[in-house]
């Protein structure tokens, strides 16, 4: 049976009738039309579906949309303001931190919490912080460099 789901995504209010079994990633992509968060493994391993829920990185494939009732979701679409990329997006571009780009939206959301929790992380702390996001192209080095560059420039 459907129920009403009301939440905020990227600062905008949404209200939809959804089945409780609808996963948050499917709600974001198929109902809200936000295809930035990707579906990779769909088993909470790869992190491509990572979004922020009340400021915390979560895997939206392992959460029912109804669990986000009354809460605030931030997806990759919510980062750039007035056509200006967010510092992490800018750094991923400058440092060549992506090749195919599939993992990037999730990687950036997790990096955002990493820098919020620890504004000047060591290389080891960056790698530990990004453990929940898999990248099959870059070998991670340039991703680590991008996060370092943002930290050095004063944060996300």
């Amino acid at each position: 049976m459907k129920q009403t789901l009301t939440l905020t995504i990227n600062g905008k209010s949404y209200s939809d009738e959804v089945e409780p079994r609808l996963l948050l990633i499917h709600y974001l992509r198929e109902v809200a039309g936000l295809t930035g968060p990707h579906i990779g493994c769909e088993t909470s391993i790869c992190g491509a579906c990572t979004v922020m829920l009340d400021g915390m990185a979560v895997k939206s494939c392992t959460m029912f949309a109804v669990q986000a009732e009354g809460r605030s979701v931030l997806t990759i679409e919510g980062l750039a303001q007035n056509g200006k990329l967010d510092p992490l997006q800018e750094a991923f571009w400058n440092e060549h931190a992506l090749q195919c780009g599939f993992c990037t939206p999730g990687m950036i959301m997790t990096a955002r919490q990493l820098l919020a929790d620890n504004p000047s992380p060591s290389e080891q702390e960056i790698r530990h912080g990004l453990e929940g996001n898999l990248c099959r192209c870059t070998g991670y080095q340039h991703i680590v460099n991008a996060v370092k560059a943002v930290a050095k420039a004063g944060g996300a």
Binding site: S44, G47, T50, L53, M56, A57, V58, K59, T62, M63, T110, Q113, L114, G129, E131, G132, N133
Partner: peptide, 9 residues
């Protein structure tokens, strides 16, 4: 435990 996304939930 797991990774930060899992530890957040």
């Amino acid at each position: 435990i797991g990774d930060i996304q899992v530890r957040n939930m």
